Simulated scan of single mutants.
Amino acid sequence: MSTQTSTTAAGPARGARPTRVGDGAGGRPSRLAVGITRIGHEVRGYFRTPDAVFFTFLFPLIMLGIFTAAFSSSGDIQAGPGSEGISVGAYYLPGLLAAGMLLSGVQNLAIDIAMEKSDGTLKRLGGTPLSPVSYFLGKIGQVFVTGVLQAALLLLAAATVFGIALPTEPEKWLTFAWVFVLGVGTSALLGIALSAVPRSGKSAAAVVIPILLVLQFISGVYLQFYVLPEWMQNVASLFPLKWMAQGMRAVFLPEDFAVLEQNEVWDLGWVAVALLLWLVIGLVASKLTFRWIRRDA
């Protein structure tokens, strides 16, 4: 007994595996550590897929260039007589930033996960010790990384190529930060939940893209929100993209443009409430609908 006691006091028994920082029970890496590791894997896989990069990463930048070139001769947009005028590109920039978050999260993940279910990738992962939590963290982390890169590229092009003036007030960028974080997180979770809808990977794009295209048209991305009929604005208010675009307009448009919103104010409090509500809905729906394999497989 004395020998055993002295061995324990001196250190771990011979051959025992030392516990590493971040290890879980039994010396295995924690779910968080595995999830962080998977972020790099997911980001590399994303940029190796040309169609995903084009339709979710570069698409908002291309649309900003088209809007700026097509409507550059139509003059500035004004909120009313005597108000500060802004270029067409400056007006559409906030909506395209919001659309980029939606595409990176909802469209990218919904189609990507549906394809992984269809080709058997999820079934193989389900046979490993990988936790769904770690899998979610990898996917959500990938959306945040690509979303940040996409927004930075769009803002850089707006300022240097299209001559759009960006805000200089710190409080504006603070608003941008929390709208961006809530918008990207909500979009990622809704993308995971929506991936359960397509019956196969081949049908995923046909199911997901039309839904998002309609939302972009009624939420102030491709059409000026204030010219839409009231009933369409009310429908758009039921979905997160409208609030993401409104939050971004509060950051990048002059203050007098607030009168063009549905309630004639930026309503940033309601922007936060709406996005938090959809974040919870996306989290619950993801937990309830996610399966390594389809139930009807």
Rank of each mutant, 00 (worst) to 15 (best):
M115F: 07
G45M: 05
A157P: 06
V106W: 10
T146A: 15
T56I: 09
G126N: 06
F59R: 01
L102A: 12
T68D: 08
T121H: 13
P94S: 12
V88W: 08
D51H: 14
A79Q: 05
G82E: 05
M101Q: 15
L96P: 02
L93D: 04
R44Y: 01
K117W: 15
A114C: 05
F136H: 09
L103Q: 05
V148P: 04
F47E: 04
A52C: 01
S74Y: 14
S72E: 05
A52Q: 07
G141H: 00
Y46G: 10
G127C: 07
V106Y: 13
R48E: 11
D112S: 12
R48F: 06
V145F: 00
F57D: 00
F54S: 07
S73G: 13
I36P: 00
A110F: 04
F162D: 01
I77M: 08
S83V: 06
I111N: 02
L155F: 12
L61C: 11
Y92A: 12
F71W: 13
S118Y: 07
Y91L: 07
T128R: 12
N108L: 07
S134G: 12
Y46F: 15
S118H: 12
G85E: 10
R48H: 08
K139F: 03
L64H: 13
I66K: 10
G127Q: 08
A79N: 06
I111A: 06
L154R: 10
L125C: 03
L97W: 11
T68Q: 07
A70V: 15
F59E: 04
I111D: 02
L61S: 14
L153N: 05
T56S: 15
R31A: 14
R44E: 02
K123V: 07
G85H: 09
T56Y: 04
G105Q: 08
I113P: 04
V53E: 04
S87E: 03
I62M: 11
T49S: 08
F55D: 00
Y92H: 14
L93S: 03
I113A: 00
A70R: 14
T68S: 15
I140C: 14
I66E: 11
P50D: 12
L64P: 07
V43P: 03
L149D: 01
L156S: 13
Q150P: 04
L58M: 11
V161A: 10
G40D: 01
V133A: 14
A158F: 07
A151P: 02
L109G: 06
A33D: 02
G80V: 10
T160F: 11
Q150W: 03
P132Y: 14
G75K: 10
E116Q: 14
